[in-house]
Design a protein around this nucleic acid. Structure first.
Lengths: 346, 346
DNA sequence: GTGAAAGCGCTAACAC
DNA sequence: GTGTTAGCGCTTTCAC
């Protein structure tokens, strides 16, 4: 309200301080080369007038926006049941703030949204993009490539398209899965089942691969496909119990799935970990700490992944050398280690 | 990458179509008054060149950004344990998208962040703001008022400052609480406890008031303060059980709190709902449907609240009449009804 | 109906 | 060091 008073411009500040616009601009942008008495006068004028630079005018000439887009592509469910994204967002937000950049959030659910996102990115509103939860064959990476915007992916993108050198940040899903399964083996378990995540996402595929690395010749009946939701964990657990009532351990693709599995195990009177040991993935604290019993799981530093993505992207922006045709030679991707967190379930 | 090719400008399109910049601008912005043959030629040129308007240049003259800020003020915990915000964000995102507006997300955690947010809002990057989860005595509303930006609050703000006529969207927390407690009464329960939410938020205060509306002379020992987290639900439930082992019902301020309470009840061998009936608030499906037993709760249309906030804000923006000094006369706030959802816990 | 021209507020050469 | 000046790409009167 009361937007009636027009905001002061550089011009106004210059007039008040008795200097030129250029000098004010220099002071405001912290470029040295303005002698102290003058600079001080300018700063006072800025304060007195409550001057705030007009970002649009600045962007018009600098071609920078100090804003990056965060694109989350999730058809419905998962984003809102799983604190995963919220936590990654927090990491991103913190890091972006530290670098004086803004976060433009783009939530997409269907194909129409994709077109819109493409337009937005091409429209030059943001300096770069962070992209999450791609599914295999997602058209988004291609759209983004066309928009020609520096991008960092969250999670290894499906390399099916033959596109190399894309920057991404991922957890060591495969290694983490191996650790989980080895832990179960170390507990003396031998009939270890796996409930997978949504297999159209590389994280789920990688965890399955890790499971198989350790259990090379597992009975295929011990692997059931899930989709990272608690409901899928329940369904899968029921199926497993039907197929292999003798199983003595379960490695679930994430904590939510594990929580679902735990419920079904309890329902069927199996004691955890005595009869069946359970390990999850993520270490989503509100979930993992409050299951019954508390969940042994593979921790990944979710917030850290978010922060790292931002750092990678901003480095790219500040160092255009990397942004050349042959950006491919500097993959600039990072795979973060995971750690097993022991609680009571295994 | 390959940002080397400069994006085509209005000028380029005009040249290609053999018209003036003004004409192209008219076609691009859909203002009628350009005769068909010409308009068509312009459209073709736009397509061929892949022209996308430069938003910064446009904003510079129109003083519109087609972007609004969403400010979520939560010191840590709650945002990331509770799908509440995620769901509201989704509603906001959808509605904003439908109106071709962008969502700039501002997460704040401490005082430093407040200053930053104030600067950002004053910087004229966005046309308006949506603000969430204010705590009583939060400095944010004042900052926002100073920035002079149209704003809609999510949840009734603390009116302590004497500021009236602020626009907000809220659920009928008090009415919903009354319904919950009456339902418990209808079940024949007479020793009904309440675990509150964080009492520095109006939603928690309103729910407590609703509880008291129905249970006018409740033993104060039956009310324990929580903070909307599951952990607080556990703690509070333990305390209640110690103080009033004879209690036969609990109304929890939200589903997460109820889930915590359920766990403690089970731990203590109380059967739900036979020994103790439990009602929550929110109807956060992933939580409410998966407790044991599934939770009877008060549903609020969270996504709808988000959408409504956007509509209110955009209406404000399009109709500057409301944005006058005396905006106070049009409170333009909405309180949405709640409904009791019966499941197994009460 | 269409074009010409002014200017939104700022930065960055370039002079001095 | 500081000021002058020329745009950045767009919308919008105002003539025609």
């Amino acid at each position: 309200m009361t937007e009636t008073v027009p905001r002061p411009t550089l011009e106004a500040v210059a007039a008040r301080a008795g200097v030129s616009r250029a000098t004010v601009s220099r002071v405001v942008n912290g470029s040295d080369g303005v002698r102290e008495p003058l600079a001080e006068r300018v700063r006072r004028a800025v304060d007195e007038l409550g001057y705030v630079p007009n970002q649009a005018a600045r962007s018009l000439v600098t071609r920078r926006h100090d804003a990056i887009a965060v694109i989350i592509a999730e058809p419905e469910t998962r984003v809102f049941a799983d604190p995963f994204f919220a936590r990654q967002l927090r990491g991103i937000s913190k890091e972006l703030t530290a670098h004086d950049n803004q976060l433009v959030l783009l939530l997409t659910e269907d194909r129409d949204d994709h077109a819109r996102v493409g337009r937005y990115l091409a429209g030059g509103h943001v300096d770069g993009a962070l992209v999450f939860s791609l599914h295999i064959d997602d058209p988004l990476p291609e759209l983004i490539r066309k928009a020609g915007l520096p991008t960092v992916f969250g999670g290894r993108p499906d390399s099916g398209g033959g596109r190399d050198g894309v920057a991404y940040v991922d957890s060591d899903n495969r290694g983490g899965a191996r650790d989980a399964v080895r832990h179960l083996l170390g507990l003396g378990r031998s009939r270890i089942a796996h409930i997978t995540g949504a297999l159209d996402q590389t994280s789920a595929v990688d965890r399955l691969d890790g499971f198989r690395d350790v259990r090379v010749d597992t009975d295929p009946g011990l692997v059931v496909e899930g989709d990272f939701t608690a409901a899928s964990g329940e369904r899968a657990m029921r199926e497993l119990l039907g197929r292999r009532p003798d199983l003595d351990a379960v490695f679930a693709a994430n904590d939510l799935t594990a929580a679902g599995a735990l419920r079904v195990l309890r329902e069927h009177g199996r004691r955890v970990p005595d009869d069946v040991a359970v390990v999850g993935f993520d270490d989503m604290q509100p979930i993992a700490e409050q299951t019954e019993p508390p969940l042994t799981t593979v921790r990944q530093d979710i917030e850290g992944m978010g922060r790292l993505m931002v750092r990678l992207l901003l480095r790219d922006l500040d160092d255009p050398a990397t942004t050349d045709e042959d950006a491919g030679v500097v993959p600039s991707s990072v795979v973060l280690p995971t750690t097993l967190v022991r609680r009571a379930s295994a």
